[in-house]
Simulated scan of single mutants.
Amino acid sequence: MRITRLFTEADRSPYDNIDFKTISSEIRNPDGSVVFSQERIEVPAAWSQVASDILAQKYFRKAGVPAKLRRVEENSVPSWLWRSAADKKALATLATPAQEGERAGGETSARQVFDRLAGTWTYWGWKGGYFNAEEDARAYFDEMRYMLASQMGAPNSPQWFNTGLHWAYGIDGPAQGHHYVDFETAKLVRSKSAYEHPQPHACFIQSINDDLVNEGGIMDLWVREARLFKYGSGTGTNFSSLRAADEDLSGGG
């Protein structure tokens, strides 16, 4: 793809023409009790308090963001697009008990979220050969960050929750049963980790077999629903294949 810049300029940050502000976010129950509170978060100045509260409460990663990061070199990827991971040597300098809590924390700026989303999309696009040239990839990265910050567009909630945690911070975990299409083989494969190939899709309609315990059956549906709910997705099910009340059981009953 060729990407033409509309809102940004080469060699300038897409945030240069966007004002930011530092605010507090607090959400309360009707009885006045505090549900959520976070001080000193950075958001675009044009954002409403409601939009800022949603970002801070729902979409900021709350834990596991390393205080020190290093870039992970890949020969086939431009250096500005290398993913990041925890810098263990630098983190080792925070060795005293008083510094233990400084080794990792959560996101505090909207820029971090915009960067991890747009950066991951650009990284995936580069790996998949979508861009004609490096300048097109850079333009895409900058334009997407500008549009996110300006609220010209927004992805679904699972993208905000999950996309970029591995690329931006090296956050990962055990595989959770997700699948993805390998861009090199065009085959569906099972993900080997939780966040390198996350499940960032919003809504699903699932099928169910008229079976209690086998794959695709009633109990298996609970697992599949839990897997989707855990990462912020929604799901419904077509139950038309299940037997009606008073019908015979296949196993004799």
Rank of each mutant, 00 (worst) to 15 (best):
A175N: 12
A194G: 10
E107F: 01
A139L: 01
A92C: 08
L165A: 13
N156Y: 07
T185F: 04
K192L: 14
G106F: 04
A85D: 11
S193N: 13
A137H: 02
G173V: 13
N75F: 14
L148Y: 07
V72W: 05
A175V: 12
L91E: 13
S84N: 14
G164A: 00
L165M: 12
F114I: 02
W167A: 06
N132P: 05
S76Q: 09
W126S: 00
Y123F: 09
R103W: 06
Y130Q: 11
M147I: 09
Y195P: 08
Q99K: 15
A92S: 14
Q99Y: 15
A110V: 11
T122L: 03
A154Y: 08
A98W: 13
Q159D: 13
Y195V: 07
M152A: 05
A90T: 11
G125I: 00
P155Q: 00
A98K: 15
E74P: 05
Y140G: 04
G153C: 01
F141T: 02
R83L: 01
Y123V: 01
G153K: 00
T93G: 07
A110N: 12
D182H: 03
S191Y: 06
E143K: 00
H166Y: 13
W80H: 03
T96I: 07
Y180W: 10
L148D: 03
A95Y: 14
L81N: 05
N162A: 08
W167H: 07
W126P: 02
W80V: 01
K88R: 14
G177M: 10
E100G: 15
G105D: 04
S157D: 14
L188Q: 11
E135H: 09
W126L: 01
Y146P: 06
L94H: 08
N156D: 09
F141A: 01
A168Q: 12
W167P: 05
P158M: 05
D182T: 04
N75I: 14
N75G: 15
H178M: 11
H197D: 08
L91R: 13
K127L: 10
W80R: 03
Y146N: 05
Y130K: 11
G164R: 00
Q176W: 08
L117Q: 01
R138S: 12
E100H: 15
T185D: 04
S84D: 10
L117E: 02
G106C: 08
W167F: 08
Y146A: 05
K187M: 06
E107N: 08
N132T: 06
E135T: 11
M144W: 05
Q176Y: 09
S79G: 04
F141G: 02
P155Y: 01
